[in-house]
Computed example of a mutant assay.
Amino acid sequence: MNGRRRHVITDCLGLLLMVLVCAADVTDRQAARIMLPRLRSRFRKITLVWADGGYTGRLVTWAKEKLRLTLQIVKRSDDMKGFVVLPRRWVVERTLGWLMRSRRLVRDFETLPASSEAFIYFSQAMLMSRRLARPASRRRQEQPRWAAAA
């Protein structure tokens, strides 16, 4: 998306906890300095946050001293080539993939960052409500096609 960046914080299941939409010139560390205090005030029990390499540096010590949050960086090793699924980072990537199924979020139609954040939350709520409304009996009764023919 041109001119905007979406920063998200998810739980271990990939459900959104926080969203920040800001200008593209805002770095990951600057966005984390905005989001982490809000995360700490909303969710007091969270003490460990996994992040990618863009959040390294003084931010780790700042989060530890000021917010009492352990910011653990999940790094990619230098000998890896191409796309490699990294532990814990795939959760956020999967969540962003779920959100990109929403047609409204694929293109940036919103003029205000606040309305863009609202549509991200709305898309997540729609996704979760559809999953909750899915009948459980249908999942249990489904069998592979080859089993039905035998």
Rank of each mutant, 00 (worst) to 15 (best):
N2V: 10
R4G: 00
R5A: 07
H7T: 08
I9Y: 03
T10M: 03
D11E: 07
D11R: 03
C12S: 08
L13R: 09
L17D: 00
L17W: 03
L20K: 13
C22D: 13
A24E: 10
Q30W: 00
Q30H: 07
A31Y: 03
A31W: 03
I34T: 12
I34S: 04
M35L: 15
L36M: 13
R38N: 10
R40S: 15
S41H: 11
F43C: 10
K45F: 10
L48P: 01
V49W: 02
W50S: 00
A51Q: 02
G53Y: 01
G54W: 02
T56M: 07
G57H: 07
G57K: 05
L59F: 10
L59T: 04
L59V: 06
L59G: 06
E65T: 14
R68D: 11
Q72G: 01
K75P: 00
R76T: 05
D78W: 03
K81D: 05
F83V: 08
P87K: 04
V91T: 10
V92R: 01
V92F: 02
L96M: 15
G97M: 04
G97I: 01
M100R: 14
M100I: 03
R101P: 00
S102C: 14
S102T: 10
R103F: 07
F109A: 07
E110I: 08
E110A: 09
L112V: 06
L112P: 01
P113V: 05
S123E: 11
M126D: 05
M128F: 12
S129H: 11
R130Q: 13
L132I: 15
R134Y: 13
S137V: 14
R140H: 12
Q141L: 15
Q143D: 04
A148K: 14
A148H: 09
A150R: 11
